[in-house]
Simulated assay, not measured.
Amino acid sequence: MISLNFEKSADGLLPAIVQDYRSGEILMLAYINRLAWEKTLETGKAHFWSRSRSKLWLKGESSGHIQIIHDILVDCDEDTVVFKVEQLGNAACHTGHRSCFYRKVENDKFIVQGEKVFDPEQVYGKT
């Protein structure tokens, strides 16, 4: 199995940039450990390590908004990946937006771009 340089990080976590495979839109940034990497390669679905819950996380396991891997790019140091995915459910962000990067900095405030794709209250029971 292809291995990454997990030893480079003190906590064994490497950044995973998630990008729409068609449009190139950046959907989110998450972290992978060795287990998440292996599950992603094994299943073809994006898995991450949840830092807040300290557990393996299949993207979309609660919402149904699964990410199907189309390509994986690895940087020159083997310590960062880009997952090019098909985003099922049309939303990557738990807030209901398509991308986690839905706010633009303009002057001294955030400007929200785009509309929510789903209501997080209905999907998760919270925002």
Rank of each mutant, 00 (worst) to 15 (best):
T43K: 11
A91Q: 05
F118L: 10
L58I: 05
Q87C: 05
K39H: 15
H65M: 11
W49M: 08
R51F: 15
E42A: 14
V81K: 01
D108P: 00
G44N: 08
T95A: 08
Y124W: 09
N90D: 15
A16K: 11
H97K: 02
N33A: 12
I72K: 00
K59S: 07
I2A: 12
E86F: 06
F110C: 05
S63M: 01
G89H: 05
A46D: 01
I66W: 09
I32G: 03
D71K: 15
Q122T: 14
T43I: 06
S3P: 05
P15D: 08
E7S: 06
T95S: 13
E115T: 06
K104N: 12
F83D: 00
E115I: 04
G64H: 04
F118E: 06
S62L: 11
T95I: 08
L88D: 01
F6Q: 01
Q113C: 13
N5S: 04
E106W: 06
T80I: 06
V85K: 04
G64M: 12
V82H: 02
G44V: 12
L4E: 04
F6P: 00
T40A: 08
F101K: 09
W49C: 08
F6W: 04
V18P: 00
P15I: 08
I17K: 02
P15V: 09
A10L: 15
G89S: 07
H70M: 13
N107G: 10
S63D: 03
N33M: 10
C100T: 05
L14N: 00
D79E: 04
Q113N: 10
E38P: 03
L29P: 07
G64A: 13
Q122I: 15
S62P: 01
K59C: 12
K8T: 02
Q113Y: 05
F6T: 01
V18R: 06
R51T: 08
K45W: 15
T127Q: 10
N33Y: 10
K109L: 00
V123A: 10
G12K: 00
H97I: 07
E25M: 13
L4N: 02
F110G: 03
M1I: 12
Q19F: 14
N5V: 00
V74G: 03
R103Y: 13
E7I: 01
S52H: 04
Q122W: 04
L35T: 14
D77I: 01
G96H: 10
Q19D: 07
A16N: 11
L27K: 03
A10R: 05
G125M: 09
G60T: 08
K8N: 01
L14Y: 00
I32E: 06
Q87N: 04
L73P: 01
H94V: 14
Q87P: 03
W37N: 00
L29F: 12
K116E: 13
Y102S: 06
G89T: 07
H97V: 02
K84D: 12
A91W: 02
